[in-house]
Amino acid sequence: MTPSPLLNVRGLDVHYGRFQALFHVAVHVAQGEVVALIGGNSAGKSTLLRAIAALLAPSAGTIVFSGTDLGDLKPHQVVALGVSLVPEGRHVFGSLTVRENLLVGAHSRRARNAIRQSMEEVYELFPILRQRANIMGNELSGGEQQMLAIGRSLMSGPALMMLDEISQGLSPLVIKAVYRTLSAISRTGTAVLLVEQDVRRSVSVADRVYAMVRGRAVCLGVPGSLTEDDLKKACFGFELQGARSSEGERS
């Protein structure tokens, strides 16, 4: 018997005014799983993450996380349930120090010991943040800001971590370091939903891959079964022959 997924998105429609961005999207993520969501520009990847984080209200469909329907919740309530999003563009708080940024990430938690422990874990993952603890967020390099954004997100103790375009604007060395960290995070049992335009790299760490094509999610399957051609088509938004729609996969 298959265990129920940690995150289960079914039949999700999202509109921006009269423009429909997502069409009957169905995606699921199991505990400890790394799922990559690939696709071209404006395919709806970030929209899906924003809807799961309750920043956008769906017009149809359900988002169930750990048995709780996220439909009527606000973003801070979703974070408290164990879902965190590292937004595209990092968005560290420039007027707060690195340490304060991390503490803001732990806002939904009260237990001081747990917060202190999470901060130690983040400092172990990204030792540079410990050295920069009292530096303002806007004084960090792009790579350091990305590490801070991921670390800050980890401070809420998430069961599901969503990351949006984390390699954007970073040097290859930094990207490598960030991806090493992702593997370490998933080993702790935290599920990861990864949105990337760097397809090869995201697929290399994923257990399963979805492609977003013009607002529709298509499950491509496990990375080993994917050809270079499948990935190229997903990136450029072509229809994927033989790939099952995520609705079909679940039915």
Partner: peptide, 8 residues
């Protein structure tokens, strides 16, 4: 928006 994503 980012503050809301941090649980605030």
């Amino acid at each position: 928006e980012t503050a809301r994503l941090m649980g605030i």
